[in-house]
Amino acid sequence: MSATDDERARAGAVGLVLARPARLLGVEPFFMEFIAGIEERLAERELSVLLHVVAHQEAELAAYRRWAASGLVDAVAVVNLTADDRRPALLRELELPAVLVGTWEDGPGTARTPAFPAVRTDDAGPVRDALARLLELGHRRVARVSGPAGLLHTRARTAALLEGCRAAGLPDPVVVEGDYSQEAGERLTAGLLRSADRPTAILYDNDVMAVAGLSAARELGVRVPAELSLVAWDDSTLCRLASPPLTTMSVDVHQYGVSVAESVLELVDGLPVTERRSPTARWVPRGSTAPSPARAEVADGAAAR
């Protein structure tokens, strides 16, 4: 078959299924930036993204079956990998080319090279970095508002925070599970701040929950950053326009999407797929982090003398 005939046989699309509430896509910038990065790179080859939003993973599996039967896509990008994930096995069975995106493991605590190419993410390193920054500021009671516990990147971040706190001689941090929504951020933050031993710093798994947590602290009369430091994962306009602006673990999400598209293009071209990693999240300090209240009191006392 000639190259021209081969191009005509292609569907001209890459599939991306998001198993999450559709209402979150309108308020959470991450996936819009991620998809924009994929589309920018694919457009250079006149390919497009076929986006399908579903309520749960069963519906995602059904979408893959339909796409494989109809030849609607040339390949798929698989995001939000989970513990005991059924998608890789189904995609192998369907012989549907795929790129796995994010953290991947085979069994508890064991990483492996998957049967599909992957664009891997370091979720543990940035958590260790964020914790180190908070420890430097004197924080000893650190909590975390996480994403869904079944996601592998959630588990990796939680494990890194637990290990980091234990290594620093701190008690295990309180970790509460959210769903990336504003409602979860407000409710879970309020619960943490009403506890008897409330944290002096909270790490969030996305920007929306962090901004909502800032609002909850304000409602309860807890001053940020004088009494409470907040750190968001993923930077966005929401974080920059908050008052005070939120410190973030910032990821170049657009470049992340570009990297996924490059792996997909190599895959559909029948080339060896380069091992790629997403850009590493980096600490961007803003007005929502400051020395812990205890350290601030010591500094104020020293200044008074």
Rank of each mutant, 00 (worst) to 15 (best):
S2P: 11
T4C: 07
T4Y: 11
R10D: 13
V14Q: 12
V14R: 10
R20E: 14
P21C: 07
A22F: 02
R23E: 10
V27F: 00
E28K: 00
F34N: 04
F34T: 02
F34A: 05
I35Y: 01
I35N: 01
G37V: 05
E40A: 08
E40R: 05
V49D: 15
H52E: 10
A55F: 11
Q57C: 12
E60F: 15
E60A: 15
W67L: 12
L72V: 14
L72F: 10
A75M: 09
V76H: 10
V78M: 01
V78H: 01
L81C: 00
D85S: 08
P88T: 13
L90W: 03
L90Y: 06
L90I: 07
R92N: 07
R92F: 04
L94D: 04
L94K: 05
P97M: 07
V99C: 03
G109D: 06
P114W: 15
P114Q: 15
A115L: 10
A115N: 10
F116G: 10
A118F: 06
V119L: 08
R120C: 00
R120H: 04
D122H: 04
A124D: 04
G125I: 01
G125P: 01
P126R: 01
P126W: 03
P126G: 02
V127T: 13
R128D: 04
D129A: 13
L134H: 09
L135E: 12
L135T: 11
R140I: 02
V142L: 10
A143P: 04
R144G: 06
G147I: 06
A149S: 09
A149Y: 00
A149K: 05
H153Q: 08
T154N: 05
A156V: 03
A159I: 00
A159M: 00
A159R: 10
L162M: 07
L162Q: 12
G164D: 06
C165M: 13
R166W: 07
G169K: 09
G169A: 12
P171H: 11
D172S: 12
P173R: 13
P173K: 10
P173G: 10
Q182A: 13
G185V: 13
G191R: 15
S195L: 11
R198I: 08
P199Q: 10
N206T: 02
M209T: 11
A210F: 03
L214E: 05
S215C: 10
A216D: 01
P225V: 03
P225W: 03
E227K: 03
L228A: 01
L228F: 02
S229T: 01
W233T: 06
C239I: 02
T248S: 07
M249E: 01
V251L: 05
D252E: 09
Y256D: 12
Y256C: 06
S259E: 11
V264N: 01
V268M: 09
G270I: 06
P272W: 02
T274I: 06
T280R: 08
A281P: 09
R282V: 15
P285I: 12
R286Q: 12
T289G: 11
T289V: 14
A290Y: 08
S292Y: 11
P293T: 10
R295D: 11
A296K: 13
E297P: 05
E297N: 09
A299S: 13
D300T: 15
D300Q: 15
A302Y: 11
A302H: 13
A304R: 15
